[in-house]
Design a binder for these strands. Structure first.
Lengths: 121, 121
DNA sequence: TCTATAAATAACTATATGGTTATGTAGTTA
DNA sequence: TAACTACATAACCATATAGTTATTTATAGA
């Protein structure tokens, strides 16, 4: 994405914005093992039907999922295999941060580090 | 991220939210070739100082960048090498979508497909 | 046709956020 | 100390968005 123009950056930001909501992540997580209809997603995410429909339309608009009407039901599935990679990378980053924080905390407890102007390093 | 609890999903969503803004993506892009201070980022992103500072604090809070004060200046750098991977994956998805749309358009123009109840497939 | 069911959408409220202007604050230099 | 610089932050406004309730639309079945 090195030399992206402003319009492209806006499109990229739109995709991230669609992912920037815990309940939508929960919906995407529910689609890991295959397509689901709205009713199924409602119970899986413990939300209301209107709310899930709204989130689904956001994800659809962003191109992250695909819709297929079947009878009175509407089935949704992931549009792109690589979407979960995004989440995995973020999780990896967070895990790394948590580990670093933990290690720091342990060093502090062992008195090997100091905060502020207490003890020298 | 398969079995993430709600708190973890919120953390992941926060990271995506920090990325969900064109100007912040522009800032991150400007940090590709190394650390920059605020003044440099202001001119690179063609924004105001207050605005850049605000966006930087969002990115900092999300753990995407790191800050280092040096004299009266504040230098920022990427906190995690894998962040650009996120953007690359999204760009790849968008590119794929664009190609699919283009191919479809070409088929339509060649009369090999039809929309609605006009011609049979 | 009438009814029931599934999903989408409209209307509304509360809250969050981006941008701006003005001000505060810390470090540097004269 | 005073003045200057770089950055952060507060206050404000306009807009966007998540959630809810109520309604609409479309399909299936009696």
């Amino acid at each position: 994405m090195e030399g992206l123009n402003d319009a492209a950056l806006i499109r990229v930001a739109e995709v991230f914005k669609a992912l920037a909501e815990p309940r939508r992540l929960k919906i995407l997580n529910s689609l890991r093992d295959g397509q689901k209809n709205v009713s199924e997603l409602v119970s899986l995410t413990e939300s209301t039907q209107a709310n899930v429909s709204k989130h689904l339309s956001v994800l659809l608009q962003a191109g992250l999922i695909q819709r297929e009407a079947r009878g009175t039901a509407a089935y949704y599935r992931m549009a792109n295999d690589s979407t979960y990679q995004l989440c995995d990378i973020v999780c990896g980053q967070l895990l790394k941060q948590a580990e670093t924080a933990l290690a720091l905390q342990q060093l502090l407890q062992q008195g090997q580090l100091s905060v502020g102007s207490d003890k020298p390093v």
